[in-house]
């Protein structure tokens, strides 16, 4: 039986997609930020793979088609960026400065932790893309010779923390500008933060989704510089 499951072309994808769907409906019903459909899907998939003794390499080869869509979907991010260009133009300096300062502070935080805990270069560059969307972060981690399969869950944990902690951060720092809230959420917590931004309002949501793309691109430029430090 293990042979059958290991060689099945569709089993891995069926489990992953249904588990994602399950996670998504639980999230919609309970509205708990800690429940993330991606994390639920990953946990359920791993449970299935380990109980049925299917090696990751066979799962990986049959779900390659999903992974291979990462580049096209990132290319597609140009579409919302283009559609929101007017918003970006309006407060260009403020938005770009907010995003760049966020990216640099993200790099500094990772560098700091890496120096204190004596992380290796590989571990350090694996953590560098933590704040950007997985679509870009995984590619960046690969290019910097990090470990993409660790970068991916770190990005999800970052997004979930940003989503949960945003109200406290905004309250303590007295952030009331919708544009500032949106930029901060998109820059620090990518798509998972953006769902929080949309709870605040339309402007927050639009700013946040714009910031995901811009900060992703900027990080690709800035992170290699940080990568030289360790």
């Amino acid at each position: 039986m293990t042979d059958f499951f290991s060689n099945s072309v569709y089993f891995g994808a069926v489990i992953s997609l249904f588990a994602y769907f399950l996670g998504d409906s639980i999230k919609r019903k309970t509205k708990i930020a800690l429940i993330n459909p991606l994390l639920i899907s990953v946990v359920i998939t791993i449970l299935f793979l380990t109980t049925l003794k299917i090696p990751y390499s066979s799962y990986q080869s049959v779900t390659r088609f999903l992974h291979n869509l990462l580049t096209p979907v990132t290319v597609c991010l140009a579409v919302p960026l283009y559609e929101k260009l007017q918003l970006l133009r309006k407060d260009f300096v403020a938005i770009i400065s907010g995003i760049i300062s966020g990216i640099i502070s993200s790099g500094v935080c990772v560098l700091f932790v890496a120096l204190i805990f004596h992380l290796s270069h590989t571990e350090y560059v694996t953590l560098l893309p933590k704040s950007i969307t997985t679509a870009i972060g995984v590619g960046l981690s690969e290019k910097l010779s990090g470990i993409p399969s660790i970068t991916a869950p770190v990005i999800v944990i970052t997004g979930v923390s940003g989503n949960i902690l945003a109200p406290f951060v905004f309250k303590i720092l007295k952030i009331k500008e919708p544009v500032a809230r949106g930029v901060a959420l998109g820059t620090s917590a990518h798509a998972i933060g953006t769902s929080k931004a949309f709870e605040y309002g339309e402007i927050e949501g639009a700013m946040s989704s714009l910031s995901i793309v811009v900060s992703g691109i900027m990080t690709v430029i800035i992170a290699p510089v940080f990568a030289c430090f360790i």
């Binding site: 300062s101 990772v110 932790v113 944990i157 940003g162 901060a184 820059t187």
Partner: peptide, 23 residues
């Protein structure tokens, strides 16, 4: 532990800095 510090504390710092600068 490093991952948790970077993702939880780090995210607050990144969010705070970019929000303040933008505002």
């Amino acid at each position: 532990p490093e991952i948790l510090i970077v993702s939880i504390l780090g995210t607050c710092v990144v969010m705070g800095v970019s929000a303040i600068i933008t505002q």
